[in-house]
């Protein structure tokens, strides 16, 4: 049976902040929300390895840092490899008695979609295969936001980006979003989950589990980006929730091979509600929206069959 969730209500969330304000993330950047809550779960005995990206540049402009835990940035494509090195060093120094073997230090690799789906994919796969006890957190804003909204392997089909513009012939991204969490799960690591800051207790429980398993874990978090997705900054969390309410984003976890949907959606919303709020999809035609809706319907069927009951309900609005 499932263990009781650690974070059941907001009152279970620790007050201590390990992300300091004064950082330069955009107003309404949900990466701030995600990282802040991640650090509340992890606590002070934590080392963060941050791949190049929005969070990295916005939180550490010398001589200022927003991090209250030890933090390192090395490059774009190697957060998983650097974290592997830290974890191995921790093991070696414990074995040699330099560090108390009972001391627990969380090692978190934090990267965006570019640093995970694309340039960092090899290092990630290597880390997973080798089985380092590292929690890899992917904050997925579905494009290279830090360099100015270029498409990545995580960009969804049809989305406008600066390198998939809406032109006379081509309209947005042609290809599908890479199923990164499934690919990671195929490595058969102890824990993989998808999460959404709109369901913060679910997300935080996943961070907690990810840190506790004996081996690598991977948490894929959707991160609405006001600048790149083109929406009013106040709607960041609304959009995150809409992604799940429309089943475009399903919150699931796979723990030791057991697949579970952790946030069920009894009454499903039409994908148009999600698209309507975002400028990056403003060029979509009715036909295109309906085509995506059909795909989502199929995916929902597949998930419900996989789970063996209706966890994602019918389309109602």
């Amino acid at each position: 049976m499932m263990a009781k969730p650690f974070f059941r209500t907001v009152y279970d969330v620790p007050r201590e902040e390990y992300l300091a304000p004064g950082h330069g993330l955009c107003a309404g950047c949900t990466a701030g929300t995600i990282v802040k809550l991640l650090l509340k779960v992890a606590g002070p005995n934590t080392i963060v390895v941050n791949a190049t990206g929005c969070v990295e540049v916005s939180t550490t402009p010398f001589p200022y840092t927003s991090w209250k835990v030890p933090w390192i940035h090395v490059a774009f494509e190697n957060a998983a490899a650097v974290a592997s090195g830290i974890e191995s060093a921790l093991k070696a120094l414990k074995a040699k008695g330099v560090i108390d073997p009972s001391k627990r230090i969380n090692i978190i690799a934090l990267a965006g979609d570019g640093g995970t789906y694309d340039i960092g994919f090899q290092a990630l796969s290597g880390m997973l295969e080798r089985g380092h006890k590292v929690m890899y957190v992917l904050y997925d804003n579905e494009a290279y936001m830090n360099t100015g909204i270029q498409r990545s392997g995580g960009t969804p089909v049809y989305a406008w980006t600066t390198t998939t513009p809406v032109g006379k012939i081509l309209k947005g991204k042609i290809q599908q979003k890479k199923p990164i969490a499934e690919i990671v799960a195929a490595h058969k690591i102890p824990y993989v989950a998808t999460a959404n800051p709109g369901y913060f207790t679910d997300m935080m429980n996943k961070f907690k589990k990810g840190l506790e398993v004996n081996g690598p874990s991977f948490i894929h978090v959707i991160q609405p980006c006001t600048t790149g997705w083109k929406f009013d900054p106040r709607y960041g969390i609304v959009l995150a929730r809409l992604a799940t309410e429309t089943a475009l984003w399903i919150n699931w976890e796979e723990e030791e091979g057991q697949f579970r949907v952790t946030v069920s959606v009894p009454r499903r919303k039409h994908v148009r509600h999600y698209f309507e709020l975002q400028g990056r999809f403003s060029h979509l035609t009715e036909e295109e929206i309906e085509a995506i809706q059909k795909e989502v319907d199929l995916e929902v069927d597949k998930i419900n069959k996989l789970v063996g009951r209706t966890v994602i309900g019918p389309l109602v609005e």
Binding site: A20, P21, G22, A27, T59, P63, T65, K68
Partner: peptide
């Protein structure tokens, strides 16, 4: 090497004027 030794010192940098 650009190390920052004071954890969380970005709180000395106010961002309220973005509003």
């Amino acid at each position: 090497g650009g190390a920052i030794l004071e954890p969380g010192n970005s709180e000395t940098r106010y961002t309220g004027d973005w509003r």
